[in-house]
Amino acid sequence: MATTQSGGLRWEHGLLALGLALLAVGHVQGLFFAPAEAMMGDVGRILYVHVPTAWADMLVYTACFGFAVAALWTGKATYDAAVEASAEVGVLYNALLLFQGSVWARPTWGVFWTWDPRLTTSAVVLVLFLGVLVLRRVIPEPERRLNLSAIAAVLAYVGVPIVYFSVKWWRTLHQPFSSPQTVDGSFITPLRLAAFGMIFLGAGLIGLRWRALRRGLERDLATPDLPAAAPALRLPGEAGGSAAGGAL
């Protein structure tokens, strides 16, 4: 196992440790030390996990968009790997966001789910980025995979600003933007700690996945997609591609 140089500490490990520490301190403070919310009571403490997840998810998706643009501009495997890594983390955060949101909605709004614009657009963005990941699994040719998944990521990203502004553009059950002006001072420290924690953790997770994916994709992309006229020659390349895909 420890034969390759992939062991050892890297920058992403630092980010992961910092992120986990900040998240833990923020959550302990939010759960046990911050006062309960005036109307929501203790249930209001879900704020410290839900809102940081939402903020971090937007940043992760924005990074994914940037990587997709860079991948299309340069064609480099390093950006191709970053697209996949950040899409994975974005989908993870997005799924958690929807779960936390519905667990919070039940006691406060009275329902687990309603097709309100904020909830609907968040769910749509989750499906779109899941689609990016699925696309990467089903395309064996490395260059096509880079191109199509990066295009899909750019298009999927359109949903992110729409989610953000949905509470402003349309009537929703979801509350509008929270800001330091609308959040009591005693809630802000744990909220900020948890938010930075989620963001650093997300960056560390992207780094970890990026490093694991990069080498295989570099190998894949070093072999050009063969023209469709030579299907017999293409099979070994496809086998190599799907083997690397299976190792993800």
């Binding site: 109307m39 203790d42 879900i46 958690l96 779960f99 919070w104 006691p107 406060t108």
Partner: peptide, 22 residues
Amino acid sequence: TGVITGGWSYIWAAYGVTWAAL
């Protein structure tokens, strides 16, 4: 009453699932 009392099971669900998944 306009004020939520209790509800810790929801809190633990949100935090527990989030930490477990992460």
